[in-house]
Amino acid sequence: MGPVVLKAPFPRRAVYLTVVRNVLHHLFFGAALSWIRNLAGTAPALISMTLLLILAGVVGLGGFALHLLADRESADAAVLHVYLSDDASSTDVDALRLKLSADSRVRSVSYTSKADALKKAQNRPGLGDLASGAGSNPFPASLDVKLKRVEDVSGVADSVSKEKAIDPVQPTSYDPGAYGRLQKALTYLAVGGGAFLAIFGLVAVLVTSNSIQSAIHARREEISIMGLVGAPNWMIRGPFLFEGALTGGLAGLIAGLLVSIGAGVGATVGGSNRLGALVPGFTVSTGVAAGLILLLVGILLGAAASLIGLRRHLMAPEG
């Protein structure tokens, strides 16, 4: 009696679902199990990438804070505070105010009394302790001059240097080299930090690439069999790509959590000396955003490192 062929009514949708389920199981679940089994070999890549991302997060948040600080300083640079002598007469103060208002380089002039100057100082980090410890009000009254251009600050400051109403010890708030020094410091920090991160990033990518190569070598027989049975390249390479992304994702998750917690603590704890007070605009949401960015960068970095290892050391036949 010959063989019996059963023609069961297999729905096409069920076939497709089975194929998709098997592919996903191979690409993701199987790759995750392999990643866990090879965790000892993946640990150096995970540690190095985590350190890289932590440093990148710290440097990135520091650069963001310095950028906000530079914006604030540049805005403050267009405001010239002309400090008034304690014994200046109202006539001299009015004359100085009229002179400044008539200057074409000046946008507006406002008056700040000694009491108002003390209140403002008490809201600035570090100055509140100085004001309370002095016993008396050490802050002078001033004329706050808003200029149309930052470049005109020095000229306006020179034009009032001989006026009777100004403080002879500290005439104005103008510091010729303050903004230039700030910009130079930002440039040095950006170049140095970028170079350091680039070198460390290269090391992390190479370590991750080596771990992927080790995984390829350990599974070379499985890879050969898949190639012989006609498995396409994406099925052979996909699990290794996912393992690299998993390594980078875990590193990004750890680094993102640490950086987010550190940024949140720095932005909220410490009273007037906290980072959020020193740098307006730096908040807890900034730290959370930095953590999410680190997670995404970690996934991309791990996948890129896997691609490097695959291109160099995996020569599967075309399926």
Rank of each mutant, 00 (worst) to 15 (best):
L84E: 10
R107H: 10
V93T: 09
V106D: 00
S74M: 09
S34F: 12
L96H: 05
D86F: 07
V93M: 00
K99R: 15
A31D: 06
W35F: 13
M49Y: 05
A32C: 07
D86L: 05
V93E: 01
T42L: 04
V58E: 07
V109T: 01
S74V: 06
A75M: 04
D76Q: 08
S113Y: 14
V109H: 00
G57D: 05
A75V: 02
P44R: 04
M49T: 15
L52I: 10
E73R: 07
T112I: 15
D76L: 06
A56I: 09
A56P: 14
G41H: 06
A43I: 14
Y111P: 04
S85I: 07
N38Q: 07
R97H: 07
S74F: 05
V59K: 03
L98A: 15
S110Y: 03
V106G: 00
D94L: 07
L61H: 03
S113N: 13
G30T: 09
A95D: 05
S89D: 07
A40R: 12
V58I: 13
W35M: 14
I36A: 09
A56E: 14
H67R: 05
S101L: 12
T91E: 13
Y83S: 09
L39C: 14
L80A: 09
A78K: 01
G30N: 10
S90R: 12
E73W: 08
L46N: 12
R72N: 02
L68H: 15
V79E: 00
L80C: 08
A65H: 03
I47C: 01
G57P: 05
A75I: 02
L100P: 02
A45W: 04
I47K: 01
A43T: 15
A32K: 09
W35Y: 13
R97L: 03
D76P: 00
L53W: 12
S108A: 10
L68K: 15
T91H: 11
G41L: 03
M49V: 14
L80V: 06
L55C: 13
S110P: 02
S89T: 13
L52C: 10
D71F: 05
S104V: 01
M49E: 10
A65E: 07
S113W: 15
Y111M: 10
S85L: 08
L100H: 04
D76A: 05
A78E: 01
R107C: 06
S85A: 14
L69A: 14
L84Y: 06
L100N: 02
A88H: 04
L33M: 10
V109A: 00
F64M: 07
G30F: 02
V58G: 12
L33W: 11
K99E: 11
D71M: 09
R37A: 11
D87N: 12
T91D: 12
D103A: 01
A65Q: 06
S110R: 08
R107N: 09
V58N: 06
G63D: 04
P44N: 04
V106Q: 01
S89K: 06
S85K: 13
L69G: 13
D87V: 11
S34G: 15
H67P: 01
T42E: 03
V58C: 09
A40G: 12
A70W: 05
S74E: 12
V79G: 00
G63K: 02
K99D: 10
W35Q: 13
T42Q: 08
D87H: 12
G57N: 03
L52D: 11
K99V: 03
I36V: 14
